[in-house]
Nucleic acid binder design. Sequence first.
DNA 1: GTGAAAGCGCTAACAT
DNA 2: ATGTTAGCGCTTTCAC
Lengths: 340, 340
Amino acid sequence: MGQRTTLKDVAREAGVHTSTASRALNDLTRSVVNADTVARVLEAADRLGYAPHPLARGLRTNQTMTAGIVIPDVENPLFGPIIAGVESALGEDGYSLLIANTERHHPDPDSVIRTLVERRVDGLILATATRDDALLELLMSRDIPIVLVNRTTERVDLPAILGDDYAGIGLAVEHLEALGHVAIGHVAGPQSLSTGRERHDAFMAWMNKLGLVADGSNVEEADWFQVDPGYVAARKLMQRRPDLTAIVAANDLLALGTYKAIRDMGQRVGDDISVTGYNDMPLVDLMEPGLTSVRVPYREMGAEAARRLLLNMRSSSPEVTEVRLTPKLAIRGSTGLVAT
Amino acid sequence: MGQRTTLKDVAREAGVHTSTASRALNDLTRSVVNADTVARVLEAADRLGYAPHPLARGLRTNQTMTAGIVIPDVENPLFGPIIAGVESALGEDGYSLLIANTERHHPDPDSVIRTLVERRVDGLILATATRDDALLELLMSRDIPIVLVNRTTERVDLPAILGDDYAGIGLAVEHLEALGHVAIGHVAGPQSLSTGRERHDAFMAWMNKLGLVADGSNVEEADWFQVDPGYVAARKLMQRRPDLTAIVAANDLLALGTYKAIRDMGQRVGDDISVTGYNDMPLVDLMEPGLTSVRVPYREMGAEAARRLLLNMRSSSPEVTEVRLTPKLAIRGSTGLVAT
DNA sequence: GTGAAAGCGCTAACAT
DNA sequence: ATGTTAGCGCTTTCAC
């Protein structure tokens, strides 16, 4: 109830000056203090249940010991694991996580980041595909360490922790090819997003690599990473190329839209036309048939981003490496041997 | 790059003392300052891009302008909307949100909350079912305003924003009864969680209210809110009561487990046995058949919790009201007329 | 209506 | 090895 115990209380209790108590409590300066003074201070701190005031400390040291994460859409289940990974890795170093949600159609998405900056976060993790605007300038001019996660942008000289979409799409295409599929189509995501574009490019590259035909007629772009756009795109694709026996979708929602389109055309998913998704979202294993999907280690991605951020916050010459995490393929009923 | 502009800079620029600048910048004290002095200060602040240092201010005012939210499992898609609602409502009042994840099987779940308390959050939203331990004492002794969200506990004198499970289960049972179902079973959630218990009690109450038999033989408890425990419980239930034509599951995952069990026994979901879920998670509409489910306004729940918290942080006599938000029923293919 | 001065709790440069 | 002192940037008495 009453006042919280301060360093002064601890110092008085241990019979030393506050500065000595401060030094004794700090790992880095402890060595300079007499061993049994340290013991006395620690004991007093412990007994009084002392916890340093983060604001006072931060004001002095110019660090808040918080990082911020900017999420484009917290309601997307994708970000849960990322947040969990970030929070957990930051926590190990005593950092806390401030969360900011940039809803779609947010009036001023930048204000969200600005708020974080004004909060004096020590670092920032951006899960938003950052566009090339003044915002990045602001951030970099403030010398706030930044790590991108999941999506990246063109222009940047920023560290990014990403899924290896090239490898992931490769898993899907190779799996289909091994099942005998030759006429394989791609329901692509919006090419304005790095994930959409990269998966598309990877698809083309793998098709070529495996000697399969990819002339552009077997690709259709969806407007948005959602079920309905996936349905629309898949329909177009199948009407143009009725010979396709397999479709690689750029994410799970597009794949589920593709399910619908396949059924609409009187075909069976997995038997007549194989489908693969991307992300392995919760519940896609329970669809009928279960969706074969590329699983991206999102939690690990978040943790890795946090670790990179911690490193760069400490270092004066931050590394800008791009890390690609290796995905796995979860094979289920939506893919099967090519119909003969 | 260089130093950030401080209040001192603004004051100098406006030709006034820092204290005057402070008063001019603060909504509450502005009235006491000469109108054109205010204008001069505001202009200077604007021109210099001044943003107050939250740590300095917080140290002085003893407020951090942050709230914390404790989530039992960020990876559960349920919490995305809650977080979004909280963050958005807090943001409107200038508060930021610190997130803390208590994974299941976390070695020391309390340490998570303790961290938040040491961070001096101004308020706390708990989405965890708080057990009756010393922790709550700590929190209440610190006079930190708390709001529970989604789950509640027995003992407490704490405000809580919850779904109206009684009404929600009522929607499901009445819907089934209207379809002609009489022999209705319940796959219950863990009775140790408030949601599990409340939905169970609501089920019994509604069955009685509608004059349907609920003798306990038509209820089976699942160990955990997951698909497999749901499967196990549903199987047991159907073996004991082969006459059931409908099953109300305590959440969507249990309902999907029930799907499996129904199929295992050679029956068809929706045609032979109707199933309802609870929560209306993403993708359950795309299951085959689409799951009829009780939709809880989680985003609104989060927003409401944040608003209550803001109120209680301001007030010296916090309200401890419990708010129940009204759910809706999303009707899909998993429920149909009783087989004749 | 405005300025002067103190102080929130801590750390760090300087002195001893 | 410890104490003294100053100050991070702000708000808020208290004077005038």
